[in-house]
Computed example of a mutant assay.
Amino acid sequence: MAIEVVTTNDLMVGSSVVIEGGSPKGNLVAVFEDDGQTGYFYALDMAAAGNPIQDAMHIYNVSQIADREIASTVKIGWSSDGRKVVLLINNHPHAVFDFENRKGYCRSAFPPVSPSQDWSKDGHGWNNLAIEALFR
């Protein structure tokens, strides 16, 4: 079973951009943002009362990307159940949100504690099992 890629965009790292990809099954949205200094990935639940942002993870610091002058491709893809989402940059997984288990995983493992008290209580450390869960 493959993920369903809902958005594909070209990116010049360090150029401000917001890329959204909604779940094909519900009110969940994943957003990648490069604000010119950093790249972040956000989990949103549009049905949540108040602030829809459930979790946020750091993907990169622009100053640390050696080949930022080369265009990259960003994809946001969802699992078949519409509850797990992956951020792919140049087809390499950088982050995963699991809405069902309220957990985020990213290669930078930052921030160490989620901004939300309800998500990622044990941090954002990368786990290859998160990728495998997309294909169940």
Rank of each mutant, 00 (worst) to 15 (best):
A71K: 03
I89Y: 07
P115W: 06
D10H: 15
D45Y: 13
W78P: 00
A109D: 13
P111I: 05
A43L: 02
E33Q: 15
S63L: 08
I53Y: 13
A49H: 09
M1V: 00
T8Q: 12
G125V: 09
N90A: 07
D35T: 06
S114T: 02
G123A: 11
D35G: 08
V31M: 06
G14V: 00
I3P: 11
G125P: 08
D34W: 00
F41K: 04
T7M: 06
A71C: 03
T8C: 10
L11Y: 02
T38C: 09
V17Q: 12
D118R: 00
N101F: 09
S116E: 11
T73K: 15
N91T: 07
I65S: 05
A66F: 04
Q54W: 03
S72G: 01
Q37W: 02
I131T: 09
F99D: 10
N128S: 10
R102W: 15
G77V: 04
N9E: 07
L88P: 11
K25Q: 14
F110E: 11
R136G: 15
L134N: 03
G22H: 05
D45T: 13
Q117G: 15
L88C: 09
V5Q: 12
G104H: 00
D45W: 14
N61F: 10
F110W: 10
M12Y: 14
T8S: 15
D122W: 13
V5Y: 11
I76K: 06
L87Q: 01
K121C: 13
W119T: 01
P115H: 08
E33H: 13
I76D: 04
V18R: 15
K75T: 01
H58Q: 12
D81A: 02
S63T: 09
P24L: 02
G21I: 06
A47I: 03
N101Q: 14
F97I: 03
V86L: 04
D118N: 02
S16D: 13
G123F: 08
Y42S: 09
A56L: 14
E33P: 10
S72P: 00
K75A: 01
S63D: 12
G104D: 00
I70W: 12
V31T: 06
L11T: 01
I65R: 12
S120Y: 10
K75Y: 00
F99V: 12
V113E: 01
N9C: 04
I53S: 15
S72D: 00
G36Y: 13
A133Q: 05
A109T: 11
W119E: 03
A66C: 04
N27Q: 11
R68V: 03
T73I: 10
I65C: 07
A49G: 05
V85T: 02
N51P: 03
H124A: 11
A95L: 08
V86N: 00
P111H: 03
D98H: 05
P112D: 14
G39R: 13
G123Y: 10
P52V: 14
F41R: 04
T8W: 08
A133N: 06
D81K: 01
V5A: 10
S79N: 06
I89G: 05
G50H: 15
D118S: 03
P115N: 08
S108K: 04
Q37V: 02
G125I: 09
R107W: 04
I70L: 13
F41E: 04
A48Q: 14
G125C: 08
D34G: 01
